[in-house]
């Protein structure tokens, strides 16, 4: 049993039209996802825009209500908690956003920003809170005296993200969602933030859910990876298995598109597969396997059958008709035939 469990989570947004807000359709942002994150581990959600990874994370934190399905934290279902009980759980689940320039209120000082969660949950006396803010700043390696009274805009991107992390740590959480935590930062700063996040995880026994589109980064921070496409998990495996032996055609294509900086890396990625077209809108998900219109390995039946996640190796699952025993599972050889560069 993981610390965080998602079962058959669905999130649909209605599309309304006109003055009467007539319902004309729905955006299937998340369409039946199961996840389990072990305590102290890092799970990475990987996918392109429109894959639903961000929505899923918000549903898990209950920043958005689920359309159906269950999310539990530490064995307790939180999808149905009332506001009061939710407040208590919220202390233990935090989020760090992508862009620290917009996740910190520009009109508040650093000490006020970090003190905010303590004030909201009425923790400690003013003196204790002040000491705590100092401690938190030290913990994210910012000298507290220099930074306490500054405004976010006078900080560099990396320093702002450290402040956002300090705020997330204020209530001693057990689980933190990191939503593209370094994609707004330069690589040399990214490396420092990742080092910090790893150290914090080790020292405090934190559990992370990382949302990222950067596969090279994910390779270095995650224990388990779930690849999403149009609201569904198409493949999930431990890092080594996913990068070493990707099964789903979409995963293979994604890996092949990674821009690399060395020949050793180029040798690790699959032969170049250029996908045609772009990810369709989640408001009009293709029939059958949602990936089939872009898939270079599609066969008869892909447009009709919605594949389930099936076991393709130890702790390795993929949802593709090629592995589905019900369809003979012919297997995938050499990365496909058409659409190759």
């Amino acid at each position: 049993m993981g610390l965080v469990e998602a079962e058959a989570v669905v999130k649909h947004f209605p599309i309304t039209k006109g003055f009467l807000r007539r319902r004309v359709g729905e955006v299937k942002a998340v369409d039946g996802v199961n996840l389990s994150i072990k305590e102290g581990a890092t799970l990475a959600l990987v996918g392109e825009s429109g894959s639903g990874k961000t929505t899923l994370a918000r549903v898990i934190l209950r920043l958005l209500p689920a359309t159906s399905g269950r999310v539990s934290f530490d064995g307790r279902e939180i999808t149905t908690l009332d506001d009061g009980a939710l407040r208590a759980v919220r202390q233990k689940m935090q989020i760090v956003f992508q862009n620290p320039a917009s996740s910190l209120n520009p009109r508040r000082r650093i000490n006020e920003i970090i003190e905010e969660p303590l004030l909201i949950h009425r923790v400690g006396t003013p003196g204790e809170r002040r000491r705590r803010v100092g401690e938190l700043l030290e913990r994210v390696e910012l000298p507290s005296q220099d930074f306490m009274f500054r405004y976010p805009h006078s900080l560099s991107g990396g320093q702002r993200q450290r402040v956002a992390i300090a705020r997330a740590l204020a209530l001693d959480p057990r689980f933190i969602v990191l939503d593209e935590p370094t994609s707004a930062l330069d690589v040399s700063v990214q490396a420092k933030i990742i080092t910090l996040l790893r150290r914090l995880q080790r020292d405090m026994g934190l559990t992370y859910l990382v949302i990222s589109h950067d596969l090279s980064l994910v390779r270095n921070v995650a224990d388990v990876i779930a690849v999403m496409y149009l609201g569904r998990v198409v493949e999930t495996a431990a890092v080594a298995a996913l990068f070493g032996d990707p099964k789903h055609p979409y995963t293979r294509a994604l890996l092949s598109a990674i821009p690399t900086v060395s020949d050793e890396e180029s040798a690790l990625i699959p032969e170049k597969i250029t996908l045609g077209g772009e990810i369709p809108s989640p408001a009009s998900v293709p029939s059958g396997c949602a990936f089939h219109p872009r898939c270079y390995a599609r066969i008869e039946g892909c447009d009709r059958v919605t594949p389930e996640l099936v076991r393709v190796g130890p702790d390795h699952h993929a949802s593709c008709i090629l592995y589905d025993p019900a369809h003979g599972a012919p297997g995938l050889h050499g990365g496909g035939s058409s659409g190759m560069d």
Partner: peptide, 20 residues
């Protein structure tokens, strides 16, 4: 804005978000 969502995620109530 993301800082408003951040505040909601921390458990802030509507009055606090509106005025602070």
């Amino acid at each position: 804005e993301q800082f408003v969502e951040a505040s909601r995620g921390l458990g802030a109530g509507p009055l606090r978000i509106a005025f602070r």
